[in-house]
Each structure stands twice: as C-alpha cells, then as structure tokens.
Amino acid sequence: MSFKESIQLNTQLGYFEGEIPVNYQYTLGIAGTKFFETLMNEGQFVASECKTCGVKTIYPLIYCEECFSAIDTYVPVGLEGELYSFTKCYRDYQGKEYQTPHLIGLIRFEGIKGGIIHRLGIDDKEVHIGMKVKAKLKPAKERNGTLEDILYFEKS
C-alpha cells in the first residue's frame, strides 16, 4: 500500500512550519577573555605560549594543541601581521548584495600558529598575498571586548 501511493497534485503536498525558539549568550572562556580584554584595554593582540614545546597560538588557548600541556602564559603580538589569503565578497550570508564588495582576509603573525579573519581596508587593486597589514582599532573608549573592536586591517 503506502509506498505504492503517490501524491499526484502538488497542491496536496502539506507541511508544517516551525522553529527552534532559542537564543544564545556565549562567554569567551579563559583564553578568549584574556585576548579580548587585552585588545579592549591595551589595544593589542596576545598569543598563548606553550612553555613545554614553545608553540604560540592566536587565538590563544589554555592548552597546547601539540603536546596538550596546560598554558597560562600570554605574550603580546602587536597589531601587525601578514596577509595569508583573501577573498572578495559580493553578498552577505543571506545572499543580499553588498553596496561595495567586501575584502576579507586571513592575517597571520610571525612565529605564531593560527590567525585572525577580518575585513580588509585595502584597495582591491593593491591587495596581495604576503603584504604587511596592521589592525585599525576603534578608539579605546568605544571598544567593548569583541571582534568589532577591530575596524579592519589596513596596509602597514
């Protein structure tokens, strides 16, 4: 019976709509709090440093991904890095067209594992992999300890 049945008219296709009505408040964790508080208060990035194997990581971690040692050492990194890769985006995550295309880059820092993905404030004729870039921050008193404290990365 059932599997031999078929619905012949698409107007007979029924459905129910619904949603999962929750929202989230994420706290930053131990290492995340260290990173974003330092960004907010001191205007610079920090990496975590593993005392056992020496690996430094951005965003910082409370553990070493390589040797699994616990980490509570954070080292300042400044705001300058190198453009590792970039993309030019024309639409937002809902498919809506940007007024002007966005340049998004992955920025890495010398001697440090990991990196930061952010907007690039660079003319797209100039942008190239390997160029030196520097984070442009919001003024100190407008910062709130989030990724938006970084306005964009610009040519350094």
Partner: peptide, 27 residues
C-alpha cells in the same frame, strides 16, 4: 551552573586530568 570556560576548555581540563591519572601523554 555557568562555566567560565568554553566547551573546548572544559573538555581539555577533564581530558588532561584523565591522561595524567593514567600516566599517559596525548601522543
């Protein structure tokens, strides 16, 4: 009720303790 740690940080604390107790390294 509310951890200060993130999920991965919590996972690390428990995992590290288990490995230490077993006398093992992650490798």
């Amino acid at each position: 009720r509310r951890a200060q740690e993130t999920g991965p940080e919590m996972a690390y604390l428990a995992s590290k303790m288990a490995l230490d107790q077993a006398g093992l390294k992650l490798k």
